[in-house]
Amino acid sequence: MAATARARASPLNRGAIHVVLLLYAALCLGPVLLVVVNSFKSRAAIFGAPLSLPGPATFDLIGYRTVLGQGVFVNYFANSLIVTVGSIAAVLLFGAMAAFALSEYRFRGNTALGLFLTLGVMVPIRLGTVAILNLMVAAHLVNTHLALILIYTAQGLPIAVFILSEFMQGVSKDLKDAGRIDGLSEYAIFLRLVLPLVRPAIATVAVFTMIPIWNDLWFPLIVAPGEATRTVTLGAQMFIGQFVTNWNAVLAALTLAVLPVLVLYLIFSKQLIRGITAGAVK
């Protein structure tokens, strides 16, 4: 099959495809590179020639010195990492379990429960802020990582269940029934048969869940504003407020805030692709 496909895609077509893809890649990268490149330049050069690369005359790390000199950015990274990874783990596990129950078993209230779970997609959780904060206060969870993890888990579950059950409905019934005949428990069917098959979907959900969590400003501000639990995005935002005219510092802070999420994505992306290819080859 591979041979026929290769034969059919002419070199000309391939060239055209690459041109289109490269142009779009430039569009995606441009704005980000603009921030990164300018973060290494002196103030006059940022405004004088925003499009040029830093040269010997314009290279300047003053922005990074300001940001890192201010203190505890490394702690902020650790906080963001704990919260993001913790929330993703909870969303994936709980979400996959619920999606499996909803897509696999027919029981009374199934549709109603599915709808109930999708309700959360429709209203921004931010609206419940005051009640959520009251709850966290009552449970003494203010200024803890756990508070943020719980909130983000609740926020991520509806979409996770929605996407995962869509994919789980695509898993062959024969396979599961074969498993049952072989005497596998329902838990084993879920863990050993279904989960590996929906790995691409799981990686996808992981990536989608990760982004809003990493980038959220609101709940860290309300529920965990303390120095010890402050996340990178909140830290960067406070920075922008503080140095709003100091673009060196702003650009450096923004660059630093992008890096970890990029690394996280690259990690998941490998999983994602491995999952996708596993599913396709099967």
Partner: peptide, 11 residues
């Protein structure tokens, strides 16, 4: 549990 307590009831 998580969804109902943290999201639905506050909403």
């Amino acid at each position: 549990l998580v969804y109902t307590v943290i999201m639905i009831l506050p909403l």
